[in-house]
């Protein structure tokens, strides 16, 4: 017994190291599994508040880019406005629409924290569950897909960026409607990979890739990326495609969160038909 105590005392520093390191790893692993319940992350009040202040400081530096993006967007919206269409019949319009029902609701949000250099990147937004944000909602930027909401607190939301090794987004070629999945290889924040496109499909460099609408997170036909290079590796059935992202993830500062009004209905229906198959 005395030997044991002497042993522990002799190597006490090492045992202390093991103890503290175990605690650190416990935090890492716990955080990976239950991020939602973890209290200490960038959506809490203190760090979220500091990031908000800091993002406000940085706003001035990005005003030019933001203005450009906004005016582009305004232009696009104006073009679609009712005033830019010519009226063909009569003066009165009766709006009693049973054909169209609003499917997607947009909420504007400001990015208060963002990263592009890690293997798994996240964004933090300045809106949370009090603004009606829920887990699993899609996030789009001025030029297309940005990510999917992962965690929400009262006032902030954490978003899994497209630049996340585990993020897969269902997309299709705009010309031919062949669908595949968009993934990041963790190398360059401007390029992503497109997987699962069979080798007989015709395509060109510069072709646009849009969301497929299968996941019901994003509406169909939302811009995602353009094809940069493609080739078929020898003996493979699928293309290896590199795409250029349309959003500049280093400059992104305003985004929109999408709420799909029908998502619960779709999920219910799909899970119902899966059960009846079994």
């Amino acid at each position: 017994m005395r030997n044991l105590i002497a042993f522990i005392r002799k190597y006490s520093f090492f045992f202390l190291f093991l103890g503290v390191e175990t605690l650190a790893f416990y935090l890492i692993i716990k955080n990976n599994h239950f991020q939602g319940s973890s209290f200490l992350n960038s959506t809490n009040q203190l760090t979220g508040g500091i990031y908000t202040r800091y993002a406000e400081l940085g706003d001035y530096l990005h005003l030019k880019e933001v203005n450009d993006a906004l005016s582009d967007e305004n232009k696009r919206l104006r073009e679609n406005q009712i005033r830019s269409f010519e009226r063909l019949f009569g003066e009165n319009i009766l709006v009693k629409d049973t054909i169209f029902k609003r499917k997607y609701l947009y909420t504007k949000a400001k990015v208060i924290n963002n990263s592009t250099h890690r293997q798994n990147n996240y964004l933090t937004l300045n809106i949370g569950s009090r603004n009606g944000i829920e887990n699993g909602m899609g996030v789009v930027g001025p030029n297309g897909v940005v990510g999917v909401v992962k965690n929400v607190s009262d006032h902030y939301a954490s978003v899994v960026s497209v630049l996340h090794r585990e993020a897969k987004i269902s997309v299709k070629l705009k010309n031919s409607s062949y669908f595949g999945s968009m993934q990041w290889d963790g190398e360059d924040y401007r390029t992503v990979m497109l997987k699962d496109i069979p080798n007989h499909v015709q395509m060109n460099e510069g072709d646009t890739v849009v969301t497929s609408g299968f996941s019901s997170i994003f509406p169909e036909g939302l811009n995602a990326a353009v094809i940069k290079t493609f080739h078929v590796p020898e003996g493979e059935n699928f293309y290896e495609i590199k795409m250029q992202l349309l959003n500049d993830f280093k400059q992104i500062s305003y985004v929109y969160v999408l709420k799909n009004n029908f998502s619960s209905e779709i999920k219910e229906l799909e899970s119902g038909s899966e059960e009846s198959n079994d």
Partner: peptide, 10 residues
């Protein structure tokens, strides 16, 4: 540092 970068414990 971890609290700010969302990398608990790393």
């Amino acid at each position: 540092i971890d609290v700010f970068t969302d990398t608990m414990g790393m």
